[in-house]
Design a protein around this nucleic acid. Structure first.
Length: 802
RNA sequence: GCGGAUGUGGCGGAAUUGGCAGACGCGCUGGAUUCAGGUUCCAGUGGUAGCAAUACUGUAUGGGUUCAAGUCCCUUCAUCCGCACCA
């Protein structure tokens, strides 16, 4: 079989298309009686740059797994789609004057072409495009359901705002103080924005992790992101005021060590009692200074503590009635807990630093450290703490303290999350219109379900407004409408949804992509869900994955989806780095284009190499010369049909071991060792000089998920039945994977002195006899006294001698 | 600071329950084929010493457990990722 493989690739792709062999069978169709396997990869954002090899690696993993599942007799669904709303497309459209719709269509076409060239076994009949009106109709529908159920609200708050992109960003989209889209600094801006009440689902999102099979680091990241902490709320009375200052603490048992309180600069109680504060001017100056800093600066810079004492306000410690001073300081955030804390400088590093700087008392309540030197945050016996004295167990003392707070009626146990509600809007054009109408009389009114979809109006100028308002606000015919409730003149909401909306439920649509009555039928969801295996990037673990789990759990609570967790299993691929070992980026000029690789070596080589380059979950640099190694491998394989010969017992044994290894390695995503095993087998074949047809057919099938084109060609040339891609996955004979004779190591005092070949399962005496015939081992025992012989059956023989 | 990981040849990376470290591939060296480059084929390839058999040494660091440690325990260091004044 001597041809350039790239010439045969198109041929087989056409045949697969024509025979529709990768289309999943819905319930009721022939083939649906098989066990279903729903394999999902993250659908791409179709950017103008096209795909890079990282996409190929991301899809190749489940491509191999799902192809194998198909050959093992599963009804496989491996769909693909496009997450196409978003800023890059819109920015490109503004720059070039093209309409975002046209840009999107062009890019989707480009991506589709690239994906097809690689020969991925996607079910192309189920393609989902989030910008398709038949799709975003249901995105809007789910949004309205959330609205109806009180999960959507508007609030004026300090938000993350990107001056470059002119959009409000969620916390998830502004990690590290940088805009996730353009990487410029974000600023804090007070704005009236839409939120989804994701915090309502914090506990469910956390607890649900117990029932899914995610890689441990993925779970950990989500746990950290949700950031649940348990503690207590305590109400401190303000001295001489009928007012309480409420704080949150994780250590209510350190109440006896409180020597001051701290409020966030924005705390409302300050304004409320401003008239009684003698240094209000100083406080206002401090607040102005803080307001200038972004939240990023406030939290990121490890710098000296700053703050101002509030003259005129003080608090009463409810546990011992001591009067304590109150400060404002920017190390306390308004956005977490209650925006105020009780400070225990002896046992909290930040409070300690602050107390040292401002000369505040430090009272030890937990023994074990030297509080003169630094805060002690470890465990120890409680002291100076009244009824808590003598406690040594943290849990017990916290519980006792909460009991006491409740008895006194000044506090209670409570829980806090780091996760905040999801800022859910963009003041841009290319997104799903938010289906809400503002009526002067009725307030915010949902667009009636039967008026969905609310179409994105057509327009020519999509640049955002100077005041940061959505371009949709300029279309009067769109903005002006009637209130669905009272019929009066009303204004339409002009913000659009953020990019994460469409990807929050796309997998449900794959189950029933052409349904015009519902987002997906109950029957089909019941058949296909949950997703058996989801693979994607680590960068989506705290965003897309949290968001989509939230939406899904919401739909589950409404009884609209059959399972509580959408993803039964989740893995992640590692990045492909540039040949220079750096992250691939256009600016570094180290991006490898899959088209170039396909042009030069063919799709099979590209697929095989992306999986061979290293551990699937780890980052690895691209190496052009290693690509050639995979090419050599496939060329050597392709030549095997000219080496047909008699059955060779050793080779058959080697084959069965290879089938066994490839089978288990694919399931464990150890693609690199699976390919290595096939390379080894191929080396064995070349050493023998020939291979029998049956063995070659088996090899062809186990290689097929990796290099399907060349394998189809081989299958055809050997007269195989139908498509190799649909052939039965070979089984191995366990007996043939076990050798009758094995070579074991012989050690003297733990050092390797030689090897001997023994019959499998030989007893110690028999092995000892064989060893006695081994000259080099016996030579090293010369003149020594044997103290002990250790024989681990079929593994090793160690002689301890003096 | 907190959380998660990782550390093995020149490079990417392999090594069930502790049981022959370096599979497989790249690169490199030598040879064959070729006018030549490329390709292909054969042999070699952790380090040091030796013509060689062989010996010693070797999985970030230092210690420990064990007949036996890349693997288990403790120490130190380095790198990467996530979160970060979260009370």
């Amino acid at each position: 079989m001597k041809h350039e493989f790239k010439n045969i690739e198109q041929k087989w792709q056409d045949k697969w298309d024509e025979a529709k062999i990768f289309e999943a069978k819905d319930p009721g169709e022939a083939g649906s009686e098989k066990q279903k396997f729903f394999a999902l990869v993250e659908f791409p954002y179709p950017s103008g740059a096209g795909m890079h090899v990282g996409h190929i690696k991301a899809y190749s993993g489940l491509e191999v797994i799902s192809r194998k599942k198909r050959m093992e007799g599963y009804n496989v669904m491996f769909p693909m789609g496009f997450d196409a709303f978003g800023l890059p497309t819109e920015n490109y459209a503004i720059k070039t004057g093209m309409h975002p719709r046209a840009v999107t269509d062009k890019n989707i076409e480009k991506f589709t072409g690239q994906l097809k060239r690689v020969g991925f076994a996607f079910d192309w009949s189920r393609v989902v495009d989030t910008t398709d009106v038949d799709y975003y109709k249901w995105t809007q529908w789910i949004f309205l359901k959330m609205f109806e159920n009180g999960l959507v609200f508007r609030d004026t708050a300090l938000v993350n705002y990107c001056p470059e992109c002119k959009v409000v960003l969620s916390n998830e989209d502004s990690q590290g103080g940088k805009c996730d889209i353009c990487h410029n600094d974000i600023v804090q801006k007070s704005k009236d924005v839409w939120y989804l009440r994701i915090t309502e689902y914090a506990d469910k999102l956390l607890n649900g992790l117990e029932e899914v099979d995610y890689l441990p680091n993925i779970k950990q990241q989500q746990v950290n992101w949700i950031g649940k902490s348990e503690g207590a709320f305590v109400n401190f009375a303000l001295a001489n005021k009928d007012e309480t200052l409420r704080i949150y603490t994780t250590r209510p048992d350190t109440l006896f060590g409180v020597t001051f309180m701290v409020m966030a600069p924005e705390h409302p109680l300050i304004d409320k009692y401003a008239s009684g504060i003698s240094n209000m001017e100083e406080i206002e100056n401090y607040r102005a200074e803080c307001a200038k800093k972004t939240e990023f600066e406030r939290t990121q810079l490890v710098k000296e503590k700053t703050g101002v004492k509030i003259n005129g306000l003080s608090a009463i410690n409810p546990i011992n009635n001591k009067e304590i001073p109150i400060y404002i300081a920017d190390y306390v955030m308004m956005g977490y807990g209650t925006g105020a804390i009780m400070a225990v400088p002896a046992h909290d590093g930040r409070d300690w630093e602050f107390a040292k700087k401002f000369g505040i008392d430090i009272i030890e309540v937990i023994k074990g450290g030297n509080i003169e030197e630094e805060a002690y945050t470890g465990d120890g016996e409680m002291v100076n703490s009244g009824f808590l004295n003598g406690f040594t167990n943290k849990k017990d003392s916290i519980r006792r303290a909460i009991d006491e707070l409740q008895t006194l009626g000044v506090g209670e146990g409570g829980v806090q999350y780091k996760m905040k509600d999801w800022a859910f809007n963009r003041q841009r054009y290319w997104g799903e219109p938010i289906p809400i109408v503002h009526c002067e009389k009725c307030g915010m009114v949902a667009v009636p379900y039967d008026e969905l979809p609310l179409r994105l109006p057509d327009m020519d100028e999509f640049a955002p407004g100077q005041g940061g308002e959505s371009p949709l606000a300029r279309i009067e015919s769109y903005v002006n409408c009637k209130c669905p409730k009272c019929g009066a003149d009303a204004k339409r909401e002009t913000d659009t949804m953020p990019q994460w909306a469409g990807s929050s439920w796309y997998f449900l649509r794959y189950c029933d992509p052409h349904n015009s009555d519902f987002f997906a039928s109950e029957e089909k969801l019941k058949y296909w869900m949950p997703i058996d295996w989801y693979n994607g990037g680590m960068e989506h673990v705290t965003r897309h994955m949290i968001y989509s789990r939230f939406w899904h759990k919401f739909l589950y609570d409404l009884g609209l989806v059959p399972v509580a967790e959408p993803y039964a299993k989740r893995t992640a691929q590692g990045l492909i780095l540039g040949p220079d070992g750096e992250k691939m980026s256009k600016s570094k000029g180290n991006v490898v284009d899959p088209n170039d690789v396909v042009d030069e070596y063919g799709a099979d080589v590209l697929r095989t190499y992306t999986l061979f380059m290293g551990d699937y979950a780890s980052a690895a640099p691209w190496s052009q010369s290693s690509v050639r190694g995979c090419k050599r491998f496939l060329e050597r394989f392709a030549a095997l049909d000219e080496m047909l010969g008699e059955k060779n017992d050793t080779l058959v044994r080697s084959l069965h071991k290879t089938i066994k290894k490839v089978t288990s390695d694919i399931d464990g995503m150890k693609f690199n060792t699976a390919i290595a095993a096939m390379m080894s087998f191929l080396n064995d074949v070349y050493a023998v000089g020939s291979i029998d047809k049956e063995s070659l057919l088996a090899l062809t099938r186990i290689l097929c998920p990796f290099a399907p084109h060349i394998c189809e060609e081989m299958w055809e040339s050997l007269g195989g039945n139908g498509f190799c891609s649909l052939a039965k996955w070979p089984e191995y004979d366990e007996a043939l994977t076990i050798d009758n004779e094995i070579e074991i190591a012989v050690q003297v005092c733990g050092k390797l002195k030689g090897t001997v070949v023994i019959p499998k399962g030989a007893e110690e005496d028999a092995v000892w006899e064989i060893i006695n015939a081994n000259a080099s081992v016996m030579a090293s025992l010369d003149g020594k006294q044997i103290i002990k012989k250790i024989y681990i059956k079929d593994k090793i023989f160690n002689i301890v001698a003096k």
